[in-house]
Structures are given as C-alpha cells and as structure tokens.
Computed example of a mutant assay.
Amino acid sequence: MDAARRHLLATFGMAGIAVFLPVAAQPEENPRMYGLIGKMRATPGQRDALIAILLDGVGGMPGCLSYIVAQDPADADAIWITEAWTDAASHKASLSLPAVQQAIAKARPLIAGFDSHVETVPVGGHGLPKA
C-alpha cells in the first residue's frame, strides 16, 4: 500500500478510511487518547463537496470525542481534519462502520491528495476528558 493511500485511510478519520500505521498497544486499564491531524487536498473546485461528505454522518462513531473539518483560508482546495478518539482501537473500529465505508467511496474521486498527517496523543482540552 503506498504512502498516499495509507495517509488517506488514516486521515479520513470519519473514519479514517484505514489506519496509517499500527499504534502500539496500551494497557487496557489506562488507554491513551488517540489523535490525528491531517491536511487533505480536494480536486480543484471540489472542496465544499468534499467537506459535505466528510461532515455527513460524523455523529455516532463510538469513541470519537472530536471530529473537526476546517477550510484552509490560504488554499482554496485544502482541508484540515482534526480528530480526537478515546483510544486508537476506537478509531480503527470506526473504519468498518457502513456509513464510513459509504463516505469513503463517495469522497475518493474528490480527493487530490494529502499534504501532511500526524498522529497525536491528546491530553485534554475543552470538551475532552482529562487524561
């Protein structure tokens, strides 16, 4: 699987389309939160359509604490996606949800590529539980 496809799979968090890299297992009694921040590029002129797909049905993903899609004001085709999950396993499980699979299929033709992607370990903040 090439890096661009792995990145797409992980960034789509909405279920991420797939996990970019395996995440080290955490002890069950103290799982760490899991975060993703990625910059996705829409095909020219399709950013709003891609955003609509990304935002449709983002509720109801077990373990998803936050899923934010933002326009890049300096790039008419760029989208930033920021996610926080209770743990990496919840993110990975979200990828098998029917709504996520449907969104991936709809969005794929509108995605031109990915500029950056990072995994994070959220430790807290407004709306998140304390670590």
Rank of each mutant, 00 (worst) to 15 (best):
G38F: 04
M61C: 10
R47D: 11
K39A: 12
S116D: 13
L128A: 09
D48L: 08
A89T: 14
A103Q: 03
Q101P: 00
I81D: 01
L21I: 03
I104K: 00
L55M: 11
V121M: 15
D2N: 14
M14H: 11
G16M: 05
E28G: 02
P27Y: 08
Y67R: 14
A74I: 00
A25E: 13
Q46P: 01
M1S: 11
Q46T: 13
V121P: 12
S66D: 12
G59R: 11
A99F: 02
H7I: 09
R47T: 08
Y34A: 13
L9D: 13
A107V: 10
H126A: 10
G35H: 10
A103G: 12
G127C: 07
G63M: 06
M14P: 09
H126D: 08
F114V: 11
P22L: 02
A103R: 10
V19R: 15
P31S: 09
A76F: 00
C64N: 15
P98D: 01
D72P: 02
V58S: 02
T86W: 07
V123A: 06
G16Q: 08
I37F: 07
L50I: 14
A74C: 05
A24F: 04
Q101T: 11
D48T: 07
G57W: 07
A42H: 06
P44R: 10
D115C: 03
R41Q: 13
P73F: 09
A4L: 08
E29I: 04
T120H: 09
I68N: 11
A107H: 00
